[in-house]
């Protein structure tokens, strides 16, 4: 069976992707995941957001492993 990774989306990303949880075929790293994700959801291509793996923010391309949880975090600014 194809291995999958869990992705959580927040804010405008969840709105554009029309879900706040999705599962994606296991990519090797976060750069590959972003490329695949933007291909599957072109409406998020121009959006800026940060990435967390297992509740820790990352700032560089990072390898992904089975059972990792990826969160996509757009900045909020309203108040």
């Amino acid at each position: 069976m194809d291995e999958q990774i869990k992705i959580l989306a927040f804010g405008i990303l969840a709105e554009k992707m029309q879900t706040n949880v999705l599962f994606f075929s296991m990519p090797v790293d976060t750069d590959t995941l972003m490329k695949d994700l933007k291909k599957a959801y072109p409406s998020i291509d121009k959006l800026k957001f940060s990435i967390a793996i297992n509740k820790k923010i990352i700032s560089e391309n990072t390898p992904l492993h089975r059972e990792d949880e990826v969160a996509l975090l757009p900045p909020f600014s309203g108040g």
Partner: peptide, 22 residues
């Protein structure tokens, strides 16, 4: 960073570290 969804009350807490690319 704490993120809260007030429709379903899900919340998510993320540890921040110094970014290398900022």
């Amino acid at each position: 960073l704490l993120i809260c969804n007030f429709l379903n009350y899900h919340h998510y807490k993320i540890a921040l570290t110094s970014s290398v690319k900022k």
